[in-house]
Design a protein around this nucleic acid. Structure first.
Lengths: 166, 166
DNA sequence: TGCAAATGGTTTCATTTGAAACTATTGTAA
DNA sequence: TTACAATAGTTTCAAATGAAACCATTTGCA
């Protein structure tokens, strides 16, 4: 131990304690879950994270015939990522793509029967992962976490495109 | 509106509401901050996220002559990433690397004077970013968030290497 | 000793990712 | 109607990333 030298350094340089630094903690925690989930989807269903998100959004907005742009908004991911995910999903017969009548630029997207089967298999897994992830938290902590994340999402305005993982 | 069709679908397929799904929320929130911070470091200091984390760890453990392996553990990142970050940091004269006497495999790392200068400029920025990020939260919420993240970090055992961003 | 396994660290290769450029189509307004 | 801006979506190119192979050195142990 060098108590004085240490105190000196702390005072002069005020180093950050990474493990108490919220953005760092968030990134670690987020990547840990995301990767665990992603690995399972990839292995069992040959499904990337972005692809799963696209499917989730299409499932949720069933019958609306979303466009790629709308999917991008709803997933908060950028359109390039969505374009690539859709290319794979369509190629694998999980998503049906037609052209919007009245606007030939737009696509009209929906899950195929095969897509729905995958969705129905993955959705419970996703919920289980979420449950396990927050398993160590108390009921009260889970509530707080939910509210806090809502607030952070709203405040740090995820205005348009972002993200990857989880 | 198609209330019955909707109710039906919900019952049959139970689609996930992405925006209420904790791993998704975490990933969005985490990536949003991480990217904002990373952009600033990159622009103003030509410094990548991993590089900054390495510097933060070296600053915090000043005088201990950490090895790359130890830095990897302390940052929870994998050794390849650390190796690359160190290569740049050394090339840019921000980190000094010597060989451990007694074990020629190990390196002995510490910040150079230039490294300290960068550190001392970046650290307050990092703190500011963190403050702004949680600015919308109440005092109470910030406390809960801190505790919850600690718990999640501990529970979802970041056993060894992981992460990117932040 | 002396040789296999383990460790610290770097390099290589393939994949992922993001930004910017590009195509096609539609909107607008002179 | 023409021409310019905006929008939907894809492609291209470069940088970031991860996994596995790779060197050098050290450790464990027969």
């Amino acid at each position: 131990m060098k108590p004085f030298a240490t105190a000196d350094r702390m005072a002069r340089h005020a180093p950050i304690e990474l493990e108490k630094f919220v953005p760092y903690q968030l990134s670690i925690v987020s990547n840990t879950v995301s990767q665990a989930i992603a690995r399972e989807y990839a292995e069992r269903f040959d499904l990337g994270t972005t692809e799963w998100r696209v499917m989730a959004v299409l499932a949720r907005h069933d019958g609306e015939g979303l466009s790629a742009r709308q999917v991008a908004r709803l997933t908060a991911m950028d359109k390039v990522a969505i374009s690539r995910a859709l290319a794979r999903l369509v190629a694998n017969g999980r998503v049906l793509r037609r052209v919007h009548r009245g606007d030939k630029r737009r696509s009209v997207l929906r899950l195929s029967a095969a897509g729905w089967r995958i969705h129905d298999a993955v959705a419970p897994l996703a919920r289980r992962h979420e449950r396990e992830f927050v398993a160590t938290l108390s009921e009260e902590e889970r509530d707080w976490l939910g509210r806090i994340l809502d607030k952070l999402m709203a405040a740090n305005e995820v205005s348009e495109p972002r993200a990857s993982g989880g």
